[in-house]
Design a protein around this nucleic acid. Structure first.
Lengths: 127, 127, 127, 127
DNA sequence: GTGGTCTAGACCACT
DNA sequence: GTGGTCTAGACCACC
């Protein structure tokens, strides 16, 4: 469920944070679910336990998870609609991409092509 | 023309590389144009010449620029349509964003909303 | 294993690059072997760490090695038969030499002499 | 007759020296032939006259050319067989290439292939 | 003036 | 410990 790419330049601990954020937003992790233990996850991903520790600590700082000493770490109650927030941030990203494309000469014709392709992709994957 | 954001966490030399790549793709820099000299650009941006050197060297490794020793650095002949390539990579990025959005529950209604907004943005900026 | 010649006019960092390229091509370094750390190699060769850094960075740009931050640098998976490629490039070089020799008046007799010498060299070193 | 490659990393003045050395060795330039004037050659190659000056000075230091003030520069009497020397240096180069190839696993079979190809090349170009 | 290489040393982030 | 970035400053070769 959780994977990391060692060759990626982004820090391992950030990859883990993003991973868990996504799993929460996607509904795979639900409120009060138990997270994998630090040691176990460290073994599974064959990375240093300190790295997992760092990721979990940051997630706790963000309020996404909570700790019960001696028992483990668990998913907090979502304080707002994480899914909607995520979609919002993705859309913002898309808008930026389009805006950048315009500086590189995206014209009306190509724009329409792109929209068509996106719509086709979307419908295909719904079937 | 070339600017850097010191607060940005991405390395300065990468900002410069992106900057020049874009200026080339946008047609501001054309074949055999002379780049600002390492020392001069270092003064203008008030950063160390080595940092500019690093950016220029990487651009040369990529084949985007070439050097005439004792004279300066110049824009290479584009080996293919850089503008089209850039747009292509942006679109690939957009497709990935949409695909990710779907895993977070992007539905038909929201999808249509997004497309509408994008189209409105595009038309607005054309006027 | 890795050595540099300070008297050589070719840059130290290029000597290191060639050195490692050869060690990979010769099969001394195999996939996922760890390279000597930047600091350690700098001490061993008694040169500045930045110079090693430069060599390693170029090798990474070429795709010959990869980095795991905080751990070290490692040999990448060869994308094709580096040994064969190397031999091919050497032979191309030899052909060019012969072609140049012809413009300087290499005649049949001398050509045969050369081939004989080369064959003798080759056989001697095989014994 | 004389050409330079601005993108080559070897200094322009060395390229010019090699060029003239070769022209002498190939017999294009003969004893007491007049070299192109510094100004004219500088214009033809569109480079700085100082660069030509430097090349000519070095050639004079080597004894390959001599100067008559106010008249020009001329080819000296060859003090030994330049052609033979050149061929000798090329062959030394070839031997080094073969020796290097052996460290990369050149075997008997491939060696024979190479020799065959070289012989075929040589005979073809003689026809 | 131009770029190229190298040293010394600092500071940072990551494991 | 590891690598990554940046600064400061020196020296060289080339044009």
């Amino acid at each position: 469920m959780i994977t990391v790419d060692y060759k990626d330049r982004t820090p391992i601990y950030e990859q883990i944070i993003k991973n868990i954020e996504n799993l929460i937003a996607m509904g795979v992790f639900e409120q009060d679910d138990k997270l994998p233990s630090i040691r176990q996850l460290a073994i599974d991903l064959s990375i240093n336990p300190n790295t997992i520790q760092k990721a979990y600590t940051k997630l706790e700082d963000m309020g996404l998870i909570y700790t019960i000493k001696g028992v483990g770490k668990f998913i907090s109650k979502p304080n707002c609609d994480t899914k909607a927030l995520k979609l919002q941030s993705i859309f913002k990203n898309i808008e930026e991409n389009f805006s950048q494309a315009k500086t590189f000469g995206l014209d009306q014709k190509l724009f329409d092509d792109w929209i068509d392709t996106l719509r086709r992709n979307f419908n295909d994957s719904c079937d």
